[in-house]
């Protein structure tokens, strides 16, 4: 029996494949991209980054993608209520165009969520970074919808203890430090794919030499291949 005609059918879904159209932005880490639907951080969706402590490289995991967005996309990269001051010289070193960086410092928690939602929804932000500490699934769903509406990459950095809580985010990863410059990334959830078990080990050196690194990692995927090899 020939399976091909059946596999061609639109209503047959193959479990070992990511859905055909996940728009994503390469993370700059090839090994991670391989495990992400669309080959990178999903666009128009929330990505949740769960971690127990600062200082293990959560931002360094994002800087290659942010650098690329700041240079190609030209929309704002909006940081809502960052826990510390994003240090301008380090951002420049990482290849991020500072003229695309927008910092929002709301006074109240509620204003913070509002600002994240507005930024995601506006369509004028390529990425929105936020550090919400509340555990409110309604609010999270609103943010997910806003990210879809504004075609933005929403990155939420949240405490690891929330890993067990359900979340509407399209992607959830948990970070753990490893000896040296290592970072282990466990994918807890990815839309359009099974959660994958073994952690991915990445090297996120403190000294990034952003531009050089960005060039290197982007040459690995040809420009036309920006969105995904799975499309």
């Amino acid at each position: 029996m020939n399976l091909d005609p059946i596999l061609q059918r639109a209503d047959v879904w193959r479990g070992n494949r990511f859905p055909a159209r996940v728009e994503a932005v390469s993370s700059g880490f090839g090994e991670l991209d391989e495990h992400l639907p669309g080959g990178g951080w999903p666009r128009g969706a929330l990505s949740e980054i769960l971690m127990a402590q600062h200082g293990i490289g959560a931002l360094r995991l994002l800087t290659p993608a942010l650098a690329r967005l700041s240079q190609d996309d030209k929309r704002w990269i909006c940081w809502v209520a960052p826990p510390y001051i994003p240090y301008a010289p380090a951002l420049v070193d990482a290849g991020i165009d500072l003229s695309r960086v927008l910092l929002v410092h709301p006074r109240a928690q509620q204003d913070g969520l509002w600002a994240v939602e507005q930024s995601l929804r506006s369509g004028t932000c390529s990425a929105v970074l936020a550090w919400p500490t509340i555990d409110d699934s309604t609010a999270m769903r609103r943010l997910q919808l806003a990210a879809e509406a504004g075609s933005a990459l929403g990155f939420l950095f949240r405490p690891r203890r929330l890993a067990q809580r359900p979340s509407p985010a399209a992607l959830r990863v948990q970070l753990e430090p490893e000896p040296g410059n290592g970072l282990s990334v466990t994918i807890l959830k990815r839309r359009g794919g099974w959660a994958c078990g073994p952690p991915i080990h990445l090297d996120v050196p403190v000294q990034q030499h952003g531009r050089a690194m960005a060039l290197h990692s982007y040459s690995a995927t040809a420009p036309g291949n920006f969105q995904s090899q799975w499309q």
């Binding site: 826990p83 380090a90 500072l98 003229s99």
Partner: peptide, 24 residues
């Protein structure tokens, strides 16, 4: 070595030393 600015209006000096992404 940094300052706040009007959004979109930034000076961007390259730096080649180790600098952290967060400053206290």
């Amino acid at each position: 070595a940094w300052s706040y600015s009007e959004p979109g209006d930034s000076q961007q000096l390259a730096h080649d030393r180790q600098r952290p992404l967060w400053l206290l």
